[in-house]
Simulated assay, not measured.
Amino acid sequence: MLVMITTFTILLSCCSATVYKVGDSDGWTAKDDTYYNWSEGKEFHVGDSLIFQYDRNFNDVTQVSGALELEFCDSSSPKAVYNTGHDAVTLKEPGYHHFISSNHSQCLSGQRLDVLVVHDPSRPIPPSLPRKILPFGKTYKVGDSKGWNVYDNDFYYKWSEEKQFHVGDNLLFKYDNEVNDVLEISGDLEFKSCDPTSPVAVFRTGHDLVRLTEPGVHYFISSKTGHCEGGLKLRVVVASTPSVSKLSPIDRLIRWLRTLISHHH
């Protein structure tokens, strides 16, 4: 059963979990005290989920390890990074869970959240929500064993040429974040000229999982001097998944729930 209000509850045959849209109608954005006030009266349980909705061109969700990182907006050693714009995070363990934006100014302006999660032994833990309501895709480690680094001008062209990418697939960029980064840029001109001035998104953790949420051509470069010119750039063509892409996010969630319920009977 799905009740669509700001918070809705998923009921399976043996157990239940609550799905909270973080910030309600405000979503995940920078506003003083919004998330403290939002979470204050709620009781979160193991198995509940948080939905973060935001513009992925300017934001992300970074889960950090403690109150100190939350207080100082320190995203340098994240536990997890989400960047699809519609992230479902299932609370799997009791205790405090801390979330910030890695955009430092946004975090300082109030875009941070901590929730206390409790575990009731009498309450069965339901299955986790999918992280994003998209088809389950493949995860490609960019560059395979070589990772994201400068090799030669056509290394990443050859790497991507024989692969077929679809909506829902993931690109995993692994690199030394002290000497490198990943920028998603908007077009072929910026790609050819290695222009990092107007990126669509910036990733700097050294272990970035980028979800391919839309069909079309996606471009990635390094902003570090000489790296893109040396071949550290990637172009991928993403095909849609017709049988799933026509469904709204809620329809996909309902389909997922029905699948789970059928497995319980």
Rank of each mutant, 00 (worst) to 15 (best):
K92W: 05
V64C: 01
K141T: 12
S65N: 12
C14R: 13
F173G: 03
L113N: 01
A201S: 13
D188S: 09
H263E: 13
V202R: 14
P242E: 06
S128N: 13
H86S: 10
L189E: 14
L11N: 09
H207N: 13
P124W: 10
T225S: 14
V238G: 00
V167T: 01
D188V: 11
G110L: 10
V46T: 12
L247F: 12
V200C: 01
G66V: 09
T34Y: 02
S77H: 13
S13W: 06
S76G: 10
D48G: 09
V244R: 03
P94E: 08
A88Y: 14
N149F: 00
L116R: 15
H166K: 12
H265M: 04
D24R: 14
W256R: 02
V19W: 00
A201K: 12
E178N: 10
E178F: 08
V64F: 05
N180W: 05
V210T: 10
E184S: 03
H264V: 08
S77R: 14
N57Y: 10
T197R: 14
Y54E: 07
V182P: 00
S240W: 05
T259P: 04
S122C: 11
D251T: 11
P135E: 06
E40D: 15
K233F: 08
Q111A: 06
T9Q: 13
D169N: 09
T62H: 09
D32C: 10
S262Y: 07
S13A: 10
M1H: 08
D24C: 03
L129A: 03
D120V: 14
F165A: 06
E161R: 13
Y156K: 07
T29Y: 08
S198Q: 08
D60A: 04
E229D: 12
G216Y: 08
N37A: 08
V22G: 03
V200M: 14
F8W: 11
L253D: 07
F52T: 01
N177G: 09
S102Y: 10
V150F: 06
G23S: 11
E162H: 15
E184W: 02
I254D: 02
C73N: 05
C14G: 15
V118P: 00
V19E: 04
V118Y: 14
I261N: 08
K132M: 12
S39A: 15
Q111G: 05
R235V: 05
A80M: 11
L253P: 00
H98T: 12
P199W: 13
N177Y: 03
R255P: 02
R123C: 01
Y157R: 01
V167P: 02
S75R: 00
L50C: 11
D154P: 02
G147C: 02
F52W: 05
L68Q: 14
G41L: 04
L11M: 04
P215W: 02
V19C: 09
D24P: 04
Y20M: 07
K233W: 00
G110D: 08
L234Q: 07
L212E: 02
V81T: 07
Q111C: 11
S65P: 09
N103A: 02
T18K: 14
H265G: 13
D32R: 11
K141V: 06
S16I: 03
R252D: 02
T62C: 15
N177L: 01
Y140D: 09
D152V: 01
L189M: 12
G231W: 00
N177F: 04
N103I: 06
F220C: 08
S101Y: 06
S16M: 10
